[in-house]
């Protein structure tokens, strides 16, 4: 930063460019080093983990480690990954559909109680998910539903934030004239929604999907409270469990690291591919 930054930086002086690039470079190291380290660690033999350069390859052992981690404990890790895909992947899909329909109806139809419903749902955005976990457990316990797939899946498919986003987006991007035209053509309301309106709402729906996917994938408290049976765990809870016994079972250390890598790589790839949608969606979310 130059001495008088306010008036000199305009001409893109080499000094301000260097400073800017330096700042960005330092933060790049901060954000990427841990991920790079995790990748390197997952390629190492058990013995090399603490004895060789942590940020560079020694004997590359990635395939053996992957085989090891996937088959450990009768292949429980693939099971956890599958569970996570079901909870987060399928759950977010259902959540997006429900929130999209509800938000759309709130935006496009006038009916008594519309604002009341919207405000109650909006209040739901501010209710922290962790505050719901314990009462949800007690409710599921009353009907004998704890420690089941549904005890984690069903609460995850409700997304008040999705309704909020879908309503805002539908109000501005689905023209009433279009719906009138479809009505004149004799198309039913539900069919019009699925054949016309959904297409116009795609950017918002992708955003809702991504948000909900991340929310479910990251949700730790609900599965922690609900599930006892290891085979129902999402991958985060499973790796957490492995990590708690690392001191007693040191061989697990490498598997915790390799498993962590396996669980985040698909996410990073999906995130980067869908980044365009993130930006449009986040822009919509902050326009109040």
């Amino acid at each position: 930063m130059s001495a008088t930054p306010s008036s000199t930086a305009y001409r893109q002086s080499p000094v301000s460019r260097t400073v800017a690039m330096l700042v960005l470079g330092v933060f790049t190291l901060y954000f990427l080093t841990p991920i790079w380290w995790l990748f390197i660690a997952a390629t190492k033999e058990r013995g090399d983990l603490t004895t060789t350069n942590p940020l560079w390859f020694s004997d590359v052992n990635l395939l053996e480690n992957l085989q090891g981690v996937f088959s450990y404990g009768d292949g429980i890790l693939p099971r956890w990954l599958l569970n996570s895909v079901l909870y987060a992947g399928v759950g977010a899909l259902v959540a997006t559909l429900l929130a999209g329909m509800c938000g759309y109806a709130l935006a496009k139809y006038a009916f008594p109680g519309r604002e009341v419903i919207f405000n109650v749902v909006l209040g739901g955005v501010l209710v922290p998910a962790t505050a719901l976990a314990l009462p949800l457990f007690l409710i599921f316990a009353q009907v004998g539903g704890t420690n089941t797939f549904w005890s984690v899946f069903l609460p995850s498919i409700v997304s008040p934030f999705g309704v909020y986003l879908a309503r805002i987006y539908a109000a501005s991007s689905v023209p009433d004239e279009l719906l009138e035209a479809a009505r004149l053509d004799g198309a039913g309301e539900v069919r019009t929604f699925f054949s016309v309106s959904v297409r116009l709402m795609v950017p918002a729906l992708v955003t809702v999907y991504l948000f909900q996917f991340v929310a479910i994938w990251n949700n730790f408290f609900l599965p922690l409270i609900m599930l006892r049976d290891e085979s129902l765990f999402p991958v985060t809870l499973g790796l957490y469990n492995w990590n708690t016994v690392v001191n007693q079972v040191p061989e697990l250390r490498l598997y915790v690291l390799t498993g962590s890598l396996v669980s985040i790589v698909p996410l990073i790839v999906v995130f980067l591919l869908l980044q365009r949608f993130w930006r449009t969606g986040l822009g919509t979310g902050s326009l109040k």
């Binding site: 841990p34 991920i35 985040i264 996410l267």
Partner: peptide
């Protein structure tokens, strides 16, 4: 680069 860590769930980030 800056957005990548958001793909890491809190539990995994804490383990790392």
């Amino acid at each position: 680069a800056f957005f990548a860590p958001y793909a890491v769930p809190g539990v995994i980030a804490a383990i790392m």
